[in-house]
Computed example of a mutant assay.
Amino acid sequence: MFNLISILIGLVTLVSGLIAFVPLLGWMNWLVIPIGIVGAAVGAMSSSSNAGRNLNLVLIVIFGLRLMLGGGIF
């Protein structure tokens, strides 16, 4: 059950993150990354499957890199 919730949170993160790729909307990454962290935490609670956790971790890395390239971090 937690894995399914984590995947749904990951899909919300993905859609929000794709919107944040639009120029001048990069500030949304500051909102998207914490949502992904919550999804990864929920996914870590499920011991049977790691798909939701892994999805959220990949999204955190991708959107974190986008934030770094846009000058939002460092």
Rank of each mutant, 00 (worst) to 15 (best):
M1V: 13
M1Q: 11
M1H: 14
F2P: 01
F2E: 13
N3K: 04
N3A: 05
L4H: 06
L4E: 14
I5E: 08
I5F: 11
I5K: 05
S6I: 00
S6Y: 02
I7F: 05
I7T: 04
L8I: 13
L8H: 07
I9M: 08
V12C: 13
V15G: 01
V15F: 11
S16M: 14
S16C: 13
S16A: 15
G17Y: 05
G17N: 05
G17L: 06
G17D: 04
L18M: 15
L18T: 08
I19V: 15
I19M: 14
A20F: 08
A20Y: 06
F21Q: 09
F21M: 15
L24M: 09
L24W: 14
L24H: 11
L24E: 11
L24I: 10
G26L: 06
G26H: 08
G26Y: 05
W27R: 03
W27G: 08
W27A: 09
W27P: 00
M28D: 02
M28F: 12
N29R: 02
W30H: 07
W30V: 06
L31W: 07
L31C: 05
L31I: 10
V32L: 06
I33S: 02
I33P: 02
P34K: 07
P34Q: 06
I35S: 05
I35F: 10
I35Y: 02
G36K: 01
I37P: 01
I37D: 01
V38Q: 00
V38L: 14
V38I: 15
V38H: 00
G39Y: 04
G39V: 04
A40R: 00
A40C: 07
A40H: 03
A40E: 03
A41H: 01
A41D: 00
A41I: 12
V42I: 12
G43W: 00
A44E: 05
M45I: 15
M45F: 12
S46T: 10
S46E: 15
S48G: 09
S48A: 14
S48V: 10
S48F: 12
S49R: 09
N50Y: 06
N50K: 12
N50D: 11
N50E: 12
A51W: 07
A51G: 01
A51Y: 08
A51Q: 07
A51F: 09
G52K: 01
N54A: 08
N54G: 00
L55A: 09
L55C: 08
L55K: 03
N56K: 03
N56E: 04
L57F: 14
L57K: 09
L57E: 11
V58G: 11
V58S: 11
V58A: 14
V58C: 10
V58I: 14
L59M: 12
I60P: 03
I60L: 10
V61L: 15
V61Q: 06
V61K: 04
I62D: 04
F63S: 13
F63D: 05
F63H: 13
G64H: 09
G64N: 11
L65R: 08
L65H: 07
L65D: 10
L65I: 14
R66H: 09
R66A: 14
R66N: 12
M68H: 12
L69W: 10
L69E: 10
G70F: 05
G71S: 07
G72H: 06
G72R: 04
G72C: 09
G72L: 10
I73R: 06
F74N: 11
F74H: 11
F74E: 09
F74K: 09
F74W: 14
